[in-house]
Amino acid sequence: MSIVITNLSKKYGAETIFENFNLVIKKNKITGILGPSGAGKTTLLNLCSGLEQPDCGTIAGINFQSISYIFQEPRLLPWRTVRENLRFVFKEKSIKKPSLHDADIDAMLELVGLATVGDHYPSELSGGMRQRVSIARAFLYPSELLLMDEPFSSLDCALKNRLIDDFSKIWAQDKRTVIFVSHNEDEISRLAQEVLTFSDKPVQLLSREIRV
């Protein structure tokens, strides 16, 4: 099974982003999408996540109830601690039987190097630490599809390298389907197993490259 996008069209006013666009994305792989800024990569993720609806066409093979998203910015609740932010996306079944155990949170925080800041508020963390919380949230959430919209773009080089390593480690544990968009070729080449290159608007697939 793959994610199959068929005859997708999307316009914002007079601006055409997609016109009869077709694409197949393989499951359980990290697919990187390269393209110029503002070309429509984020729009594709928003369409895949259900945040936006296509004007025409279909996107098949996505369970919209089972998606994680790492945004360009961390999108954490400023009034909740790191732990509470991670718990926020889980259903509360009951106090005695929570759907997310403390041990799971601790293990994930350990994995992303945030073991000591579980009870801190986002305002007490650096930008990179906040983004790592957002990565932890996306991986803790039991999704079939993970969407990533330039999650490393606002970080410095050392931190970016560290996070890419963290990401690879965490992804190797469950190998879920990942769609990762960026305009940075280095980030894509370090993470993606398949690299798609998009043209400017209206989007066309310029190349498809499989990397080992």
Partner: peptide
């Protein structure tokens, strides 16, 4: 709106 979008993606219920 960005927090609301995040909550929508993760299927957080309306009460929460």
């Amino acid at each position: 709106k960005k927090l609301l979008e995040m909550a929508k993606i993760y299927n957080v219920d309306q009460t929460k």
